[in-house]
Each structure stands twice: as structure tokens, then as C-alpha cells.
């Protein structure tokens, strides 16, 4: 069949009354899915626990093998053989001196750790600068497309949805263009407040990352046949 014919037949069927299942069927299926998900969750936890136990088991075997090898070696070699070189008594002072050096360097290390705690925190929590960098990736049309993919039931009326998305995204874009990142964030917070049930990402950075990453799917629209 040609594409044109398919499109024509599709149009005819879309003119027909929508075919819908009953709410009772929907409830039955979703209830079954929830019950099964509990089992799947339990299985998932079990499999994670068993893999953890397996790795513990492997560690145990490795430890036993190590002990066995040492015991075997101790049977073959005398204690004197296990000491490479006897330390001459006149070198005791120098060893003590080196121990002092080690002590002072360890103390220095611990001081460094106490003096600069923020260096470790930076790697785990993004700085404001790096969060601003994320916002610089904001693409107006891409983000609008992503939000437009949401079904109308998120926003109720389709017209309201389109206009509120466009207005908010344009405002956010304007803020970002002039470097007013906090203004953009505030505008996004207002936008999410207007539609609390939409389940939008917690932050504007998350939204930008979602728009620019591969999680956008063509199949997200309703497929009601």
C-alpha cells in the first residue's frame, strides 16, 4: 500500500468514535502490574544481596588461599629465612630519625586535610559556576519541544499549556542571555509552582540536561490508535 493510502485510511479511522477499554480493565491490569512489581523489587534486592554475598565468598576463598600459602611457606622456611637483612644496631638512631620524619609528614597531611575540607566537597557538589555553565547549554526550541511532548493531561487545556510553556521558556531564555542565571532559576521555580502536579525536574539545570541528553523519546506521545 502506498503511504498516501495508509494516511487516508488512518484519517477515516480517526474520524470514527474512539475505541476505549473500560476503567475496570485498566484498574485490573495496573493492579496486577503493581503486585508483580513488588515481587520484581524483592527479586532485584535478592539478586543484589546474592551477588554481594558471592563477592564476599570470593574474598573469603582468596583470604584462605593466602593463609594456606603463608602456612606452607612457614613450614618450608625457617624464621631467619623470612628476614631479608638483619638491621645493624648502630643504625637504630637513623631509623628513629626517619620515624620522626614520617610522623611529621603524616601530621602535615592531616593538617592539610583539616585546613582544606572544601576541596573534597567541590568534587561532589557542583559549584555555582558549573551550574551556570549547565544553564549556558539552554536551547530554547529544544526545551520547548521537550515540554510540548508532554500530554495535555499534564496541563489540562492544550492552549494554556502551549502559552504557559512558551512564556516561561522565553523568560528563562532572556534571563540566561543576559547572564541573570538566578533570575532564570527563579522563573523556573515559579513555572514549576504553577504546575506542581506536572512532576517537572527539581531544578532548571536538570531540565536543561534532560533536554540536551538522550532521554527524549519520540514515543512519549499518547498512542491511542
Amino acid at each position: 500500500m502506498t503511504e498516501k493510502q495508509i494516511e487516508q485510511l488512518k484519517k477515516m479511522l480517526s474520524d470514527a468514535h474512539p475505541i476505549q477499554s473500560t476503567d475496570e480493565l485498566d484498574n485490573q491490569i495496573l493492579k496486577a502490574a503493581r503486585i508483580e512489581s513488588e515481587k520484581l523489587k524483592a527479586e532485584s534486592i535478592d539478586s543484589r544481596s546474592s551477588s554481594w554475598l558471592n563477592s564476599l565468598g570470593s574474598l573469603g576463598v582468596a583470604a584462605m588461599l593466602t593463609v594456606t600459602v603463608f602456612l606452607g611457606l612457614s613450614q618450608v622456611l625457617s624464621p631467619d629465612d623470612l628476614v631479608a637483612n638483619k638491621v645493624p644496631t648502630q643504625d637504630v638512631d637513623s631509623v628513629a630519625f626517619k620515624q620522626k620524619e614520617v610522623d611529621s609528614s603524616v601530621q602535615g597531611l592531616s593538617q592539610n586535610t583539616i585546613v582544606k575540607p572544601s576541596s573534597t566537597q567541590l568534587s561532589s557538589a557542583p559549584s555555582k559556576g558549573s551550574r551556570d555553565d549547565i544553564l549556558m547549554q539552554f536551547d530554547l526550541s529544544e526545551t520547548e519541544d521537550l515540554l510540548a511532548n508532554l500530554s495535555d493531561d499534564f496541563f489540562g487545556d492544550a492552549g494554556v499549556k502551549q502559552s504557559s510553556i512558551r512564556l516561561a521558556m522565553n523568560d528563562i531564555n532572556s534571563f540566561i542571555q543576559v547572564g541573570e542565571f538566578d533570575g532564570a532559576r527563579q522563573r523556573y521555580r515559579d513555572f514549576t509552582f504553577d504546575c506542581q502536579e506536572c512532576g517537572l525536574p527539581d531544578s532548571l539545570e536538570d531540565l536543561v540536561l534532560a533536554a540536551s541528553s538522550g532521554i527524549r523519546a519520540n514515543g512519549s506521545k499518547d498512542n491511542t490508535g
Binding site: 521537550l146 511532548n149 508532554l150 500530554s151 506536572c198 512532576g199 517537572l200 525536574p201 527539581d202 536538570d206 540536561l209 534532560a210 541528553s213 532521554i215 527524549r216 523519546a217 514515543g219 512519549s220
Partner: peptide, 16 residues
Amino acid sequence: IHAVLINRFTLRMMQE
């Protein structure tokens, strides 16, 4: 995908 993104919004965007 970062765990914080797995909310209803993200589920709507995800591949099947």
C-alpha cells in the same frame, strides 16, 4: 540518567 531525574516527567520522556 541521574537518579533525581527519575520522576514522572522523566518517565514520560524515556524510551520504552
